[in-house]
Design a protein around this nucleic acid. Structure first.
Lengths: 193, 193
DNA sequence: CGCCGAGTTGAACTGAATCAAGAAACGTGG
DNA sequence: CCACGTTTCTTGATTCAGTTCAACTCGGCG
């Protein structure tokens, strides 16, 4: 159950066996079947989720009913609506399983308690945030500078593991394109090879 | 000199007078005149900068020579190329003063030493990162869902303090628009009022 | 006084969206 | 294991938001 989490932690900081065991007690395991929600828009986000297995996505829905994919997350990643999680306000995001998934949940209070109990866990969280922030900045930069085709190629090379596991229209939504446009772009690329 | 920084820290965590004084010793004060660079593309980013006074911007330049604004930052904000700063790799961003500015610089090693000397500084940094991450996520969401006009209005209401202090073409670049388009959008809005 | 960067306006163009229809792949229950 | 509905992907025709290119105005500063 905790393999992926421990691997993720030990890539960033050094914890003793006892500390790792202590960590375990703060998490709530949870299984999610494909299409089930971890969080629905209009609810308050009470969990920070670590993914042991599976794929999740976080998205918004606009007035016209179009979905806009804000984030993908697979094994070894964290996902949550951090704003709602930290402020306690109602969320504007939906978080849903794309595949059957296994999660480890951390409530707001459990997270704080864990950071107090295991100070290195706070460092681990800070380092995760740094990486997430850098990835976000790179995504912003990509949306500002790249054409639709460049964005797609950039995505496939950056996240080769995700492409095979999620429907193409979700990738389109992540890239800010319509499914039709992404389909045409893929055709263009295939014709050129 | 340290007023803004202390204010920023004390909004997030509680430090003793002695700890605040200790913090001071890790920073290097630096003044930057308008159009001077804190970091130029191709160099390695050695500083994490806190802005005591002024406005900076961080941007990339594409093959065609167009600038793409990745971030604005004013008094009380931090700015750096976190990726280059943390990894030691060469930066693809330029960071430049938009107005004459006063900064407090933290080197990679000074930052680590400060977090070890004052553990609450690490918490402060983590909380900053959380907020920055949330703001980024909201910006991504905005680029995915909003029209050019909505993005502009969103920006003016979210950062009213920035609009008056930076040239309009920089705002256009931040929003992923051409200066001409932003000019037309502003005209549209003014005609409707 | 003259120049230069910033902003505005117009006209033509284009990349991607929209609308519509059909084909392929999937999975669920009988 | 097949049949049927659903979801996913593709293709074509048309539209449109925003870009590009070019010319002009305005204000500030050396």
């Amino acid at each position: 159950m905790f393999e992926q989490l421990f691997k993720s932690i030990q890539e960033k900081v050094i914890l003793s066996e006892a500390e790792l065991e202590l960590c375990k007690t703060f998490f709530i395991p949870k299984k999610l079947r494909k299409k089930q929600f971890l969080l629905q828009e209009g609810n308050s986000s009470t969990y920070n989720a670590f993914i042991e297995k599976g794929v999740l996505r976080s998205y918004t829905v606009d007035e016209k009913g179009n979905e806009h994919l804000v984030q993908f997350a697979i094994e070894g990643w964290w996902i949550s609506d951090l704003y709602s999680f930290l402020s306690g306000t109602v969320s504007t995001y939906n978080i849903e399983a794309v595949e059957n998934s296994e999660l480890l949940l951390l409530t707001t209070t459990a997270r704080e308690a864990l950071m107090d109990a295991v100070p290195m866990f706070e460092r681990y969280q800070r380092m995760l945030l740094q990486n997430a922030y850098i990835a976000m900045q790179s995504r912003i930069s990509s949306t500002l500078t790249e054409t639709a085709e460049e964005k797609y190629i950039h995505f496939t090379t950056t996240y080769p593991g995700i492409i095979q596991r999620v429907p193409q229209h979700m990738v389109a939504s992540y890239l800010g394109l319509t499914p039709e446009t992404l389909s045409r772009i893929r055709k263009q690329i295939s014709l050129r090879i």
